[in-house]
């Protein structure tokens, strides 16, 4: 009985992750439960809802395995700090596992900059993330970059917490990729 409950919760989490992954730009999904093994296929013959699962090589799988598709930056900076390096290293691992997946790194800036400078700053950040991935074994030809400047924030506040979330580079695996 306890086992069934755990399974149900896990399925719910996976559905939530899958729904989340359809948003663009992707937001941080809830961290996957680490101690649980991959879900078993539903027993044959059972009826009810069609569940979803994370397919290997998919965007949801990338986010789950790398821990995050997003790295953050300090104000007016494109330095890849230790926390960002750890995430990008996992992203690079995943990308090496799925060599046919091409990604786009989106660079973003917070609202506290002028529009054109922020476009350039976002491009710098996207390239900083790309360079790290390339230095960790991902072919440069698999990574395109785009800057959105301050045009597409994820956090809507006008405070330091929101700005910190918006100064980011997001590695986007194509849907169905």
């Amino acid at each position: 009985m306890a086992n069934t409950t755990a399974k149900l919760l896990l399925t719910a989490a996976l559905i939530a992750t899958a729904a989340c992954s359809k948003k663009k730009p992707a937001e941080l999904p809830p961290p996957p439960p680490q101690e649980t093994t991959a879900p078993e296929p539903a027993p044959e013959g059972q009826t009810g809802e069609v569940g979803t699962t994370v397919l290997p090589g998919s965007r949801a799988d990338f986010v789950q395995q790398a821990g995050s598709d997003t790295v953050h930056f300090a104000t007016d900076s494109h330095d890849v700090d230790a926390e960002a390096q750890a995430i990008l290293a996992k992203q690079a691992e995943w990308l090496q596992r799925y060599p046919n997946v091409a990604v786009t790194v989106e660079g973003h800036a917070d609202e506290r900059g002028t529009r054109e400078y922020n476009l350039a700053l976002g491009e710098r950040r996207a390239n900083a993330a790309k360079d790290f991935l390339v230095n960790n074994g991902v072919a440069a030809s698999r990574i395109s970059v785009i800057s959105y400047g301050k045009e597409r924030p994820v956090a809507i506040g006008s405070d330091e917490a929101a700005w910190a979330q918006n100064r980011r580079a997001v590695t986007v695996v194509p849907i169905g990729g």
């Binding site: 054109e116 390239n127 900083a128 800057s147």
Partner: peptide
């Protein structure tokens, strides 16, 4: 105009 190439504009 400005052009950004590999992080340099």
């Amino acid at each position: 105009f400005s052009m950004a190439v590999n992080g340099n504009t």
